[in-house]
């Protein structure tokens, strides 16, 4: 199954929240959905699910969601950790959600156990922490074993162990041939989880590619060279067309990825090297670079 979003557009008054957004979600990998606060990620997910009305279409295995007999077997969505009635027990909540696909009580208990809420099954979630609410929401999303998961910030409120569990679970779910589309502002986590990224800013598409190629596009990928004869090395590199700039006390940041070429230049000029390290940008650095000056809610930058 593939999910195709085409021309998704949504305005709130004069503000264009989502602007002609198109992308395709493929099974087998976790796709990260990234964007600054207010960039339209949640609105996009709601448009995909038909919860918000706008322009454009989203097809699930070639059909609109409403055209499927059992929507819960097509997509499981978790949009907010507080979307439950606080007075309905966790088990009753899942039994209610399971009604669409006639999910068995055994499956409800299995899912509760899977997300670590077996002991809380008979409790009313009004006392649940944010992390427990996330687990209950995830349990609801996977209940009918859907072919696609849409998760909006599912790691919010989770402790490090739970985040690691979530990461492993989502990677496993995707590897089983399913689509996993997950938004998060925890970019370090996303880097470990997502093989593909869809990046938006101010409602428009910035990138729809593998996480690796997205990171490689960053100008922050360079090589660090440390040498006691930094100035001479810099001139030698420039002589062969390699740009370098000072980095630290005795280092050079070289805008090239070929460490061998740099080593050869140093050797040819009889310059000793103390370090020659390729530095790759992180997903966070690449993301910040690509979305620079595009945040709707950026701070002034000053501190008092």
């Amino acid at each position: 199954m593939a999910v195709e979003a085409r021309g998704l557009t949504k305005s709130f008054g004069d503000k264009r929240a989502v602007n002609n957004l198109s992308f395709t979600l493929e099974p087998g990998v976790v796709t990260g959905f990234l964007g600054p606060n207010g960039s339209g990620k949640s609105t996009t997910m709601r448009l995909m699910l038909g919860l918000d009305h706008g322009e454009g279409t989203t097809t699930w295995d070639g059909k609109r969601l409403a055209a499927h007999k059992h929507a819960t077997q097509v997509v499981g969505a978790h949009l907010d950790a507080r979307f439950f009635n606080p007075n309905r027990t966790a088990r009753a909540h899942l039994r209610m959600l399971g009604a669409e696909s006639n999910v068995s009580n055994a499956r409800v208990d299995e899912v509760l156990d899977m997300v670590g809420l077996a002991a809380e099954a008979k409790k009313r979630p009004k006392t649940f922490s944010l992390g427990m609410g996330q687990r209950l929401g995830l349990a609801g999303a996977i209940l009918a074993k859907p072919k696609a998961l849409l998760l909006d910030e599912p790691a919010n409120g989770l402790d490090p162990q739970s985040i690691q569990w979530l990461r492993d679970f989502l990677k496993f779910y995707a590897s089983d041939g399913n689509i996993v589309f997950v938004s998060s502002h925890l970019l370090t986590e996303m880097q470990q989880m997502a093989e593909h990224v869809v990046v938006i800013s101010r409602g428009s598409l910035i990138a729809d590619e593998s996480a690796k190629s997205f990171i490689n596009r960053s100008t922050r990928n360079d090589v660090l060279v440390r040498s006691p004869r930094r100035t001479e090395l810099s001139k030698a590199l420039q002589a062969v067309g390699i740009q370098a700039k000072p980095d630290g006390d005795d280092g050079l940041a070289v805008a090239a990825q070929d460490t061998a070429a740099i080593g050869d230049v140093a050797f040819a000029n009889n310059i000793a090297l103390h370090e020659l390290t390729r530095r790759s940008a992180s997903l966070e650095e690449a993301f910040l670079e690509m979305t620079a000056n595009q945040q709707d809610y950026a701070t002034g930058g000053g501190t008092k």
Partner: peptide, 17 residues
Amino acid sequence: QDYRHGTIRVTLTEFPN
């Protein structure tokens, strides 16, 4: 109650019609 607790979005995801 669906609007009060946000579960209307859960309901309408399960039943898009």
